[in-house]
Design a protein around this nucleic acid. Structure first.
Length: 557
RNA sequence: GGGCAGUUAGCUCAGUUGGAUAGAGCGUUGGCCUCCGGAGCCAAAGGCCACAGGUUCGAAUCCUGUACUGCCCA
């Protein structure tokens, strides 16, 4: 971050001196090949046209200009007009002080990219009709981590869970519990086609029975099923909250659909749409004119039976989000809901918001495997691996890291046996080990009475090997990586970065002695380097919601 | 029949939004300190970036078409 910021300001001053505006599409980034230098920029190629010069000629002019402005830099013109820039070792050594200072004051890696913009992330939002399964876990890990990353990048983030506690699915839940309750008490039961068959329904019925005995039979069936429904929703929501907490996933706001519907607010939204000509009555139903707004066809808001659709409350819900002042609203959905995106986008437009104020992130399905064999999942049939079971089996750290190691829009094979394995198939341990290794080294240093002391510039000037500078460059990039992850809504770039950093640390460890250098100054300098690396590893893992242990416990020999 | 997503090494996947010789891990093969934790390190082999066109100084990346795979909708 420091390097790119510094170079950008030098270049833009140089360009301004020539009367050329800064080209929007300029990139400044580490080149693929390290022999090209620390940073490479295509600015001369981008600005060549405006400057009326050949790219290489402009690059040469810029080269001289920035080297005059900062004599520590070296720069070369390469290829079609790249400018390759190399910073002096002292610049990279100063990264350590930067890490220490920021780590103490709120966290290294933070930036103000978001500029305090209010953004909301809504995730999981599973219907309270059963426990969370592994697929919800992926959305949960993604949403929770994305929120952490956006906060680190300077956004004002609020997290939310939308509880679908109104409508048909809820009645179905109440009825299912009621039928199980009847069954428990030996009453005759006619099983309908559509009901929740999971074991947990029987548990709920049994709990109700313990609570009320046979009292439910003494009241009208309507009231009894209502009691069943309320009890079921409350109990299932409590379970969901616990499962999420165990997975280190939090939500600041739990928003109930029922409060929208029963408060009449959905009707208010609908009449508003109607008055603006965006909704109309036809065949006894109320329709949303979404086709004019990019959807395939118009959608029903209120059926001829008078029942409101989920879509109607979803529009109202999003109107509420925007009314609360969020500039951007992020919805994380399972990929099987992708057909829902165009109508929601149409709704956002109907609410008078720009299309980019809604960002829908689709999370592809999770293929749950055990030893390469597929594990079947179906909520209705009651056969599935719950998130709680998976977390209990493999641990939150390993599960989160696995979910966050893939782009959200690609399918994920989640093999329980593999996620438990403590090898490189499963890099969470590799990254955690890098942190533990440094900590363990420091414990050893304390034992031997070695203290790192103050990391002043003179001491750090001893860090000059390619491995020293490689590590320094990499930790210097961490704030850029966080910014990229935030800008592209891609938590997985953090986990890839951490794997690289851990790899470099392990290589360093094998290549260089730290405590036994026979040179006290060098030892202390290297301790500061590794301390900074460990802080960055910990900061990165914290963004992923993964712990950074002081020592690794081997669970199997 | 429409729509969305995907296709990169034997396998699982990255690829910084169009840059220089396409990268990791696993697996395979061969090495490593009586040493700060070997859960580690070093190296080799392995590629028509699904296929065919197009856009430009430059394409795995953007556009069009085709073929498979998964999902959604009629």
């Amino acid at each position: 971050m420091r390097a790119i910021t510094h170079l950008r300001s030098l270049l833009s001053e140089a360009l301004a001196g020539m009367g050329i505006p800064w080209p929007e599409k300029t990139t400044i980034e580490p080149p693929r090949d390290a022999t090209f230098g620390d940073l490479a920029t295509n600015v001369a190629m981008m600005a060549a046209k405006a400057a009326g010069k050949k790219p290489r000629d402009l690059a040469e002019a810029l080269r001289q200009s920035i080297m005059a402005a900062d004599p520590g830099l070296t720069a070369e013109v390469a290829g079609p007009g790249f400018l390759n820039v190399t910073f002096p070792p002292a610049f990279w050594q100063a990264t350590i002080a930067d890490v220490l200072e920021k780590d103490a004051g709120g966290g290294y890696g933070r930036s103000d990219l978001g500029g305090g913009k209010k953004i909301q992330v809504e995730y999981v939002s599973a219907n309270p009709t059963g426990p969370l399964h592994i697929g919800h876990g992926r959305g949960a890990a993604l949403g929770d981590t994305l929120a952490r990353i956006l906060r680190a990048a300077g956004y004002d983030v609020s997290t939310e869970y939308y509880i679908n506690d109104a409508g048909r699915q809820m009645r179905l839940l109440g009825d299912s519990i009621w039928l199980r309750y009847r069954e428990l008490h030996g009453r005759d039961v006619v099983w309908p086609e559509d009901w929740y068959k999971g074991e947990y329904i029987i548990d709920l019925a049994r709990e109700l029975s313990d609570l009320h005995g046979a009292d439910l039979f003494s009241m009208p069936e309507e009231k009894a099923t209502a009691i069943c429904q309320t009890y079921g929703v409350d109990s299932i929501m409590a379970g969901i909250k616990k499962d999420l907490a165990d997975f280190r996933v939090s939500h600041e706001v739990w928003f109930s659909e029922k409060t929208l519907v029963s408060g009449g607010r959905v009707e208010t939204t609908l009449s508003d749409l109607k008055s603006r000509g965006l909704a109309y009555e036809k065949d006894g139903a109320l329709w949303f004119a979404s086709q004019n707004l990019g959807d395939d066809k118009d959608r029903v808001l209120r059926k001829s039976s008078g029942e409101l659709t989920y879509f109607a409350s979803d529009i109202c819900y999003h109107a509420d989000k925007f009314a609360r002042g969020f500039e951007v609203v992020v919805d994380i959905w399972g990929a099987d809901h992708h057909g829902y995106v165009p109508r929601m986008a149409a709704a956002v437009q109907a609410l008078g918001k720009s299309p980019d104020s809604l960002r829908v992130i689709l999370v592809q399905l999770v293929n749950l495997l055990r030893g390469g064999e597929q594990v079947a999942m179906s909520t209705r049939a009651g056969k599935f691996e719950t998130l709680a079971d998976v977390v209990a089996e493999v641990g939150a750290d390993a599960a989160r890291f696995m979910f966050l190691s893939r782009k959200s829009d690609s399918h994920l094979d989640f093999d329980l046996d593999l996620v438990k394995r403590q090898t490189m198939d499963n890099p969470v341990y590799y990254v955690q080990y890098a942190h533990a290794r440094v900590k363990s080294l420091f414990a050893k240093a304390t034992e031997r009475g070695i203290a790192a002391g103050t990391p002043d510039a003179a001491l750090l000037s001893r860090l000059v090997t390619p491995e020293d500078l490689g590590l320094l460059r990499q930790i210097e990039q961490f704030p850029d990586v966080v910014a990229t992850a935030a800008a592209t809504f891609s938590p997985h770039v953090i986990s890839y970065y951490l794997r690289d950093l851990a790899g470099r640390l392990h290589s360093y460890y094998a290549a260089h002695q730290v405590l036994a250098t026979g040179d006290e100054e060098l030892t202390r300098a290297r301790m500061h380097l590794l301390d900074a690396v460990a802080r960055v590893v910990r900061a990165g893992l914290a963004l992923l919601g993964v712990s950074a242990p002081e020592k690794m416990e081997r669970s199997e020999p």
